[in-house]
């Protein structure tokens, strides 16, 4: 069949481009995951804080507003917004296109991770906290030694889904030609005037990537569960 033979030709000729795209996708995905896990967790803890005067709780409000706005607008819009906003509002930072897109991805997924972490902490039985507090542990000690270790197990599966979503969402960054897999498709499409063949190759790479990722995380989950048997 012509489709497969063209696919084979496209692959043999442009494999270096696909591999470079794969590398960029992984690089961007990993950075986004790492950064948004850190900031998302911090925001989730901040959101729990009751710091404020009476009903006026500014930290809670700001974090909640941020999460709601990010979740309520399309990621493509956010990408555009940061891509144009950062260089024009903060020109002295001299950010590259890649940096702008990366920041947009991080801002987006931090909001989702924040929600995941919050839900994970909330799912830990309140009795665990009460028992720890009744022994004289303060709030911070209770979080560190009792709540967070148990919350991690609630958080991990949802975080895994978010990671896979991030890997796929990096494809939207191709709007700005930053070199990840989807950009490579556009490049090869421009050279060969072929659509389906390079698109299928990119699809297979995405699928293998997320499939392997989900299997790895399932393995990690099993390990974590086994430790308490």
């Amino acid at each position: 069949m012509e489709f497969f033979s063209v696919m084979a030709q496209v692959w043999s000729k442009y494999s270096h481009l696909f591999l470079h795209g794969l590398w960029m996708t992984l690089y961007m995905g990993a950075l986004t995951v790492a950064i948004s896990t850190v900031f998302g967790s911090i925001l989730a803890l901040l959101r729990r804080s009751n710091w404020g005067i009476g009903p006026f709780k500014p930290i809670q409000w700001i974090v909640t507003a941020y999460v709601e706005i990010i979740r309520g607008t399309p990621i493509l819009l956010q990408l555009y917004f940061f891509y144009f906003m950062l260089p024009s509002w903060l020109p002295f930072l001299d950010l590259s296109e890649f940096a702008c897109v990366l920041i947009a991805c991080c801002v987006n997924s931090t909001a989702y991770v924040c929600e995941i972490v919050r839900a994970g902490i909330q799912a830990v039985d309140i009795g665990q906290t009460e028992a720890a507090r009744s022994l004289g542990l303060n709030g911070t000690q209770t979080m560190i030694h009792i709540v967070i270790p148990q919350a991690v197990k609630n958080i991990l599966p949802a975080l895994c889904n978010e990671f896979i979503a991030i890997v796929k969402e990096t494809s939207l960054a191709s709007t700005f030609f930053i070199g990840e897999l989807m950009t490579q498709f556009k490049t090869i499409n421009g050279i060969t005037y072929r659509v389906l063949e390079p698109l299928t190759i990119v699809g297979i790479i995405y699928f293998l990537l997320t499939f392997i990722l989900s299997k790895l995380i399932a393995l990690l989950e099993r390990r974590l569960n086994a430790s308490e048997r």
Partner: peptide, 21 residues
Amino acid sequence: INIHRQKMGMVFQHFNVFNNL
């Protein structure tokens, strides 16, 4: 209150033993 709680042991209906330890 944390100082005083150290001197008041509490046992709960639902045990609340620490599952992660």
